[in-house]
Design a protein around this nucleic acid. Structure first.
Lengths: 379, 379
DNA sequence: TTTGTTCGTACGGTGTACTAACAAACATGT
DNA sequence: ACATGTTTGTTAGTACACCGTACGAACAAA
């Protein structure tokens, strides 16, 4: 049963058209009003009206006349005010440090900052996040559009972390760590908090070359995933979509996991386990072959775990994020081979699996993309 | 990258509010205009205006004054014109017969019809569908809202069957069997064609007790699934969402499948395989234990295949559809046990798996729900 | 210079939903 | 019996969003 959905007012339509203009400008770079009218299907009159609003809010600027020489009155070109705002993105997914950055509207990192975690949990961890955010707010050289945070664990739509064991959240027996509310109160800025893997998936979708049905698998101390379905992030019935780290893989046992089960995806794929297994090999050519075998086995397990998901969701693309030296090679090759072998070639023949091109900054940039989407409607 | 999304006009808002009124009325039964205003958040004035349109179209009727005695002017009650229209639902998922029915707006089957398939494929199969539809159109006693069809295979959003090997579609080297266009041309009615398992999932969501994040697994000659995410059906990047029948399950081999692989979900779960395995047991108590073991093994495989999907999508509910005597018992029990053992209890503890209560008519009723949703916006 | 094109804006009209106000019809308290 | 208060559905007027038309400005090409 659906809950009674919301009524729809004309002003909502206005808001969507406003976002449509911003989004078109964001993607295409500079356009004239007439260009926008052609691109959106709205009339020049309506575009002029919307653009007037956006100019007044300083979100859009006029950038002179069109260079190219054409018949008719020369067009005055518009663009998103790219030099007018900045965004703060924060990545809490590393087990040792909180990373953050000031980014521009195109998701380019302008200035970095980080705070060592030093084993802080609960309220201490929250305090470190707030301190990092405030430092970054001070470091910004332009008005800020907002703060985006990618946190490990389960995060609800209000930006409350419901469960992040490694960070000791929620702390003190509360039902959730209200990170979004805390940061908003501390900085007075719009704040969006979401799961780290979901943020990464959004980054890949916004700044990478990702299609609109995609899964991003983030491998680190744990293993998580973010899903983009039809261009929007999947949240799940309990905000736990993408939590595949503790799904058991295969029917042949496996190592014991911290969660109490055996053969979880994390026991095959998490970086500490992989590093330990690789370190136990020797230096000679035999060792090299063994290391390749270890990585291939991990990739196979990933393929085994993903096959039902790829089949059920009819995904076109799987993207990996994490240590390149571990993932990008035998592991990724074995994963895509396994995936192809275990799904229906007829449907998923053009399935692709690749590393992200966004590197270490993917969560921060995804956090920035969330702000962009939340404040401007650009996605 | 998103393609440029569509502009949003005030009349679209109007359409949504119109659907909102219909939907509220559809779910709650009879309501007054003032009740509708309270339920939707729109004003009485706007509701009156919308209702006037719907009365003129005969989609809504006034059904006298409120029985209950209250202060104030007595309310004139409204309802969807349940006695004013009928729907045709057609189920092509059985390997031997095409089934169809005339249904009322509540999805109740009023009159049935079926056509033996007799091995027809390609254009012959299409002709049988058209004949069945025309017979049902003649059998309807009220104006028809439209025709819904649940077909096996991959069906695109235009109702063209891209691939249904058992029915020989697409026929004659064409790229797809345009079933929706063919039926619309033959009957002059609105037609919606979709995948059978997706239709079943929609039925469970509309007429059953399903939550808004759900997976329906349909077991028959093949195995397919339909997914409801956030209240809407998932289609997939190639319209092949839910095609899990040929995903390999487990890491210990398995029987050979018609698709060329080994250990596909269908080899464990499809009814012909199960029936054959069960028939090979003897009649005594040893045979009964063996039959239970066979069913449990099948259930375990289902659980193994679904665990990554349930984990990745954070599903709250899995529903089974198919032969009750096979599914509802050891198989379902083993499936939910396996599912719980292989996913994170913390997140998915309240995961449930159950048989559908809609029985054999589930696809036809889902097809009717598609028409209801397409024509009235009721979902 | 003339012609045709393109751009951006001004004006008026239509559609949507809102607030305010009101008459009708009822229950209830005195 | 009668006044009072409540609820319903409608009318009238307003605000907003978008559209079509029309127009002046600015340019290229002939």
């Amino acid at each position: 049963m659906l809950r009674p959905s919301a009524k729809s007012l004309p002003e909502h339509a206005r808001g969507r058209n406003r976002s449509l203009v911003l989004q078109t400008l964001y993607r295409s770079g500079t356009l004239s009003r007439a260009d926008l009218a052609r691109a959106t299907g709205l009339t020049r009159v309506t575009i002029s009206d919307l653009v007037a609003d956006l100019l007044a809010e300083n979100l859009v600027v006029e950038v002179g006349q069109r260079d190219e020489s054409r018949p008719g009155k020369p067009a005055t070109m518009l663009d998103i005010n790219r030099g007018g705002f900045q965004i703060i993105g924060i990545d809490l997914s590393d087990y040792a440090v909180f990373r953050g950055a000031v980014l521009d509207l195109d998701g380019v990192v302008l200035q970095r900052a980080e705070v060592p975690l030093d084993g802080a949990v609960g309220v201490d961890a929250s305090a470190k996040v707030v301190a990092l955010a405030e430092r970054l707010v001070g470091a910004a050289s332009l008005p800020l559009l907002g703060i985006g945070v990618g946190s490990p664990g389960v995060v609800d739509l209000a930006g409350t972390v419901l469960s992040a064991p490694n960070l000791g959240w929620p702390s003190g027996g509360s039902s959730g760590e209200p990170l979004q509310a805390t940061l908003a109160a501390a900085t007075g800025l719009p704040v969006i908090v979401a799961n780290d893997a979901n943020a990464a998936a959004l980054a890949e979708h916004s700044f990478g070359a990702a299609l609109s049905d995609m899964m991003l698998v983030k491998v680190g101390h744990g293993v998580g995933a973010g899903l983009i379905i039809g261009g929007t992030a999947l949240v799940g019935s309990r905000f736990a979509a993408g939590e595949i780290g503790h799904v058991v893989v295969g029917t042949d046992g496996g190592a014991a996991c911290a969660c109490g089960k055996h053969g979880c995806l994390e026991t095959w794929l998490a970086t500490p386990r992989l590093d330990a297994a690789l370190a136990a090999t020797d230096d000679g050519p035999d060792g090299a072959a063994e290391r390749t075998a270890i990585l291939r086995r991990a990739g196979e397990r990933l393929g085994i775990a993903l096959a039902p998901v790829v089949g059920a969701l009819d995904l076109a693309e799987v993207v990996l994020s994490g240590p390149v030296e571990l993932l990008d090679g035998p592991l990724a090759e074995a994963a895509i081979e396994t995936l192809r072998m275990r799904t229906m070639a007829e449907f998923h023949g053009d399935l692709s699996l690749r590393m992200t091109a966004l590197g270490q900054d993917i969560v921060m940039r995804g956090a920035a993309a969330m702000v962009l989407s939340g404040q401007l409607g650009v996605s």
